[in-house]
């Protein structure tokens, strides 16, 4: 069952490569949040309330609800044009993302993983790479934040693959940090929208040597 959900997750990665509109990106992030909840729920080793609460908070509440709503409100408030404006054509994006997926699976297959699940590992690594690719290939700052969120989703899958055994306090600290950093990034997208009229990377070229 977990494998099926992971395949769905991979399909969302391919879809994000060809999506045109920002709201589609956000909807994909929501879907990813829900899928991650499913995967994490299946992977839970022991059913105690603190683990369940943590997973529920991280996936369904933060990843699938709060952050997408926050991003949507930023887009509306700053009247950001609805196109994603990639630097590369969609077809090339799709091709590169496919190559990243294939590469990650081949790479993960060649490593001695012991008793860990190779599929989890490969999905996690490819998600991180796709997120980084989204960051470098899109022009708008808001899509950079979305790329960062994809990277965070990849890290979440990786922590499931590793069987993250950190104490509860550390886990919740990490969760809180990520959440606050996304809020801060969102606030600065707002500010940049106020100052520069348009919030894309070409505006940010004043500081140089």
């Amino acid at each position: 069952m977990a494998d099926v959900l992971l395949v769905v997750f991979l399909i969302t990665l391919l879809y994000i490569g060809i999506a045109n509109r920002l709201f589609t990106y956000i909807n994909i992030l929501t879907i990813q949040g829900i899928v991650l909840f499913g995967v994490a729920y299946i992977q839970l080793h022991e059913m105690n309330w603190s683990n369940l609460l943590f997973v529920l908070m991280e996936t369904l509440i933060f990843k699938a609800a709060v952050i997408p709503l926050f991003l949507k409100s930023i887009i509306r408030k700053n009247k950001i044009t609805r196109e994603a404006e990639p630097f590369v054509p969609n077809f090339v994006s799709l091709l590169i993302i496919t190559l990243l997926l294939v590469g990650s699976f081949l790479g993960a297959g060649s490593i001695d993983m012991g008793d860990r699940d190779v599929v989890f590992f490969a999905v996690a690594v490819s998600t991180v790479f796709v997120g980084l690719f989204i960051i470098i290939s899109r022009k708008k700052l808001i899509t950079h934040v979305m790329g960062y969120l994809v990277v965070e989703n990849g890290i979440f899958v990786l922590s499931l693959a590793v069987g993250n055994e950190m104490p509860m306090m550390v886990n919740s600290g990490i969760l809180l940090d990520i959440f606050v950093s996304i809020l801060v990034l969102g606030i600065f997208v707002n500010k940049i929208g106020d100052v520069f009229k348009e919030s894309d990377v070409e505006q940010l070229s004043r500081l140089r040597d």
């Binding site: 960051i135 960062y148 990277v151 801060v184 990034l185 600065f188 100052v195 940010l204 004043r206 500081l207």
Partner: peptide
Amino acid sequence: AESLEATWKYVFVCSV
């Protein structure tokens, strides 16, 4: 505008 640019770059590069 410059400090805004520096802050954005700093927060984003640090987060990643």
